[in-house]
Simulated scan of single mutants.
Amino acid sequence: MLGSLWHGLKLRLTTQRRLPQKGDRVVMAMSGGVDSSVSAALLKQQGYKVEGFYMKNWDTRDERGVCPSEQDWHDVQQVCDKLDIPCTQVDFVKDYWHQVFQDTLDAYSAGLTPNPDVLCNQHIKFGSLLDKIPSDAWLATGHYCRTDGYGRLLRGKEPAKDQSYYLSTVPWTALQRTLFPLGDIPSKQHVKQMAHDMGFTQVAAKRESYGICFVGQHRKFADFLGQYIDQPAGQAVNLENGQVIGEHKGLFGYTIGQAAHIHHGPHKWFVADKDLETNRLLCVPGSTHPTLFHQACVARDWTWIHTYQPTDLDVWAQVRYRQHPLKARLTVDQDGRYRVTFKEPIRAMAKGQQVVVWDKDWCLGGGIIDDIIPATPPLA
């Protein structure tokens, strides 16, 4: 698909990245979870000089946050002690607040659906953390993805756990210095079994975390955001006829395509749009309503991992991490924004989401959805 482009890219690179060697220093970004713990152990087995870095991104003194960072830091120390490697806690609380959390709040307040994990990888893990690492050392993370000799970002071996989506804004210069020990591991269950075999029973038994850690396992994300975003409740209306069908609790707490949890009549209602000017939640009956399907999206703040700027490509694309990759065409609009047109209409695209494109397993980059184009002709 991108054969000629890749050929030209290799000519420009002239040489492969420096490949890791036994005895090289590797800084392992550790979270206290099973993935980073097993990664650190694998790196040590392979002969690297490994040290653990734990990133403190949230101030636990904020009574509104419940991130179990002290327990995570304790688990990191236990794993590092067992591996006989040094570990260090680094404070990125201010960086995270200003470069990730505040932008996330602003986006939700504006009716968008941002992805804070993409921002965290771009600005904190592969930004602030990488800046603290000596230039002759490698950074390693527990992401399920791979790189090759040229620093290309590739999908992980297990499609269901591939995390290259979250790294789509990380520049090639950072990927050249990064190792992904879990990229070739066949399954998450295999990683957990490895953790048990290595004696990491505590981290192997921990629940897998999803999203922002300080929201907590037993709190609704909308309830958490409500402590920071001051938006009033308002009317929920039927998009088809404008009839009021209930009340929403604040537009920031709803995402396009999700169940609206409005009890009115025989239908189950789903979010189709949000009108910030009138503070109304626009809903449609049924999860397959034609309004929920879109053909294309236009993205801003586009990042090409290798800095080249192709203008017309057949790609595989995703607008959500868990979404199955779909065939699409990538073009450039007259205003310079990238347009991703899907071969088949897809359900529930939302402004603010990250759209990411691949050539087969090679992650090329992505951008933030700025506009969405309905399916044409409309689905019957």
Rank of each mutant, 00 (worst) to 15 (best):
T311S: 10
R177M: 07
C87Q: 13
Q193A: 11
G149M: 04
I346Y: 07
V215S: 04
K268E: 03
V237F: 03
Y144F: 11
N241I: 00
P181Y: 08
E70D: 15
G33K: 12
P114Q: 05
T255Q: 08
D35N: 10
L364S: 12
Q99F: 11
Q77W: 10
V26A: 07
A299Y: 15
Q295G: 07
C283F: 01
V76N: 10
P134E: 01
N238R: 06
D335I: 03
P186M: 07
H294S: 15
F53T: 02
C283A: 07
D370G: 13
V170Q: 02
L239A: 11
L326C: 12
Q77E: 11
W358H: 13
P232H: 01
A222N: 14
Y321E: 09
R12E: 09
W269A: 00
G156W: 09
G183I: 11
D81A: 13
H196W: 05
C213P: 04
A174K: 09
V203Y: 14
P374I: 03
S31G: 12
D184V: 00
Q243L: 06
L119A: 11
L282F: 03
W358D: 05
D301Y: 08
Q45A: 04
S168L: 02
D361M: 08
Q243E: 13
H264A: 09
K220V: 00
I229C: 05
V50S: 01
D162G: 00
E208R: 08
R329G: 08
